[in-house]
């Protein structure tokens, strides 16, 4: 068991997953999935996941739909969207009703993401 907080990153683009994992593996234990369905599966099988970051635009299930699915299982898990798209009305309402804690834009800002995750992970007791 590592002491690093466990996070889940979902993106349909393999190279994004790779770079994300390489970038943050020193700080977090990064679990990844290349679709919402797989993300739900991994989330359900690992109760230690403390934070979820997802791409927005993915085939079959988009980021918000995926987040709603896991929130059905665990209501308090902090989630965020990391997307190349600008904010849309759908994202704004998700921010308003607390479905996501932050909307992050690609290209990602390493420091900002670390800060965000640490803030939320230290604030909550666990999954």
């Amino acid at each position: 068991m590592s002491n690093k907080p466990k996070i889940l990153y979902v993106d349909d683009e393999e190279i994004n997953i790779t770079v994300f994992q390489l970038t943050f593996s020193k700080v977090f234990e990064v679990l990844t999935a290349d679709s919402g369905a797989k993300g739900v599966e991994i989330f359900n099988s690992d109760p230690d996941i403390k934070f979820v970051i997802s791409d927005m635009r993915m085939p079959a299930m988009n980021g918000l739909e995926f987040i709603r699915k896991i929130k059905n299982v665990c209501e308090h898990i902090p989630c965020s969207i990391l997307s190349g798209y600008q904010q849309s009305p759908e994202i704004l309402s998700a921010l308003d009703n607390g479905e996501i804690v932050e909307y992050l834009m690609k290209p990602f800002n390493k420091g900002a993401i670390e800060e965000l995750i640490l803030k939320h992970v230290n604030g909550v007791a666990g999954n």
Binding site: N16, V19, F20, G84, M105
Partner: peptide
């Protein structure tokens, strides 16, 4: 277009 550019930018900068 922005989305399509942002994704490669994401991993260029990440890399």
């Amino acid at each position: 277009v922005a989305h399509e550019i942002n994704n490669p930018l994401n991993y260029i900068i990440g890399a």
